Amino acid sequence: MKAILISAIMLIILFVSTLIFFYPDRQVIALTYENEDSLLAYVPLKKEETFQIQYTHSIHLSEVMESYQLSGNQIIQTELSYKDFAVGMPSNAEGEEVFEEKNGTYYIKNMNRVFPFIDVRIGQVRANHRLIYENQVYTLSESIKPGTWIRISERTLTLWEQWKAAKVQ
């Protein structure tokens, strides 16, 4: 009888441990390799559901800021700001968007561009891609090798996945 009780307790402990380690429970901004689902790094989500990606444009060498909001498993681009009209930068707003210029910076606001994920190649020379979340700036090249093509998405991680991947510093 004692052996059966010990076996039952061990099975319960094993079951609870498995749940703790392998049950997805932590919402994060996940950074994976673009062409596979392998987790490179992550930023834990707290209360805020918005983040920005800031980088230096490779041609005109000025700062660009893209603002996003998380909604379900979607990423919605809400704003874009930049200093120069050049290759790759829009010259006006579309649809319900609003185009503004303030102090030499151009803004496209009221954007509602929905994506399941965002693909980014981490700059090797000048881009210096940064992810900004809750006023904390994460320089992506410090956690991910420059030149790597990554995919940014919202994801729920297990404790095991959190231990295996690096938290972006």
Rank of each mutant, 00 (worst) to 15 (best):
S81L: 06
I108R: 02
F22K: 13
K2Y: 13
E48T: 12
E161M: 12
Y68F: 11
K2G: 12
V43Q: 05
G88C: 07
E134S: 00
G88I: 04
D84N: 11
P90L: 11
L80Y: 08
Q169N: 07
R151G: 08
R151F: 06
N103E: 07
R126S: 10
Q52I: 04
D84M: 11
A86S: 12
Y82G: 02
A41E: 04
T158L: 05
I132K: 00
A93M: 12
E154Y: 10
A86F: 10
E66W: 12
L40D: 03
S71V: 12
V120F: 05
V64K: 12
T156A: 12
L45S: 08
V87M: 13
K167E: 13
V87H: 14
S81F: 07
S81V: 03
I59D: 14
L157V: 11
T78K: 10
L157I: 14
E101K: 02
V168E: 02
I29H: 05
Q69T: 07
E134C: 01
T158R: 08
V114W: 02
I29D: 09
I59V: 15
T18G: 10
E142R: 03
E100F: 04
I12V: 15
V43N: 11
I12P: 13
F85L: 09
V43W: 07
A8C: 11
R126H: 05
R126Q: 05
R155Y: 09
S17R: 15
S17E: 13
L11K: 09
L159C: 07
T56G: 06
H60K: 14
E48L: 10
G147M: 06
N128T: 01
Q52W: 06
F115H: 04
F99G: 01
A165L: 05
D25E: 14
I144L: 04
K145M: 07
Y138K: 03
E94A: 09
Q77R: 06
L131V: 01
I118A: 01
Q162C: 12
G123C: 03
F117P: 01
V125H: 01
E63G: 11
I4A: 07
Q162W: 08
S58V: 13
I108A: 00
N35R: 09
I59P: 13
S153E: 09
S141C: 02
T18V: 15
T78W: 07
L31I: 13
S91T: 10
M65D: 05
P116R: 03
V98H: 00
L19G: 09
I150Y: 03
Y33F: 09
V120Y: 02
K46C: 02
E100V: 01
E94Y: 10
K109A: 00
T139R: 00
L5I: 15
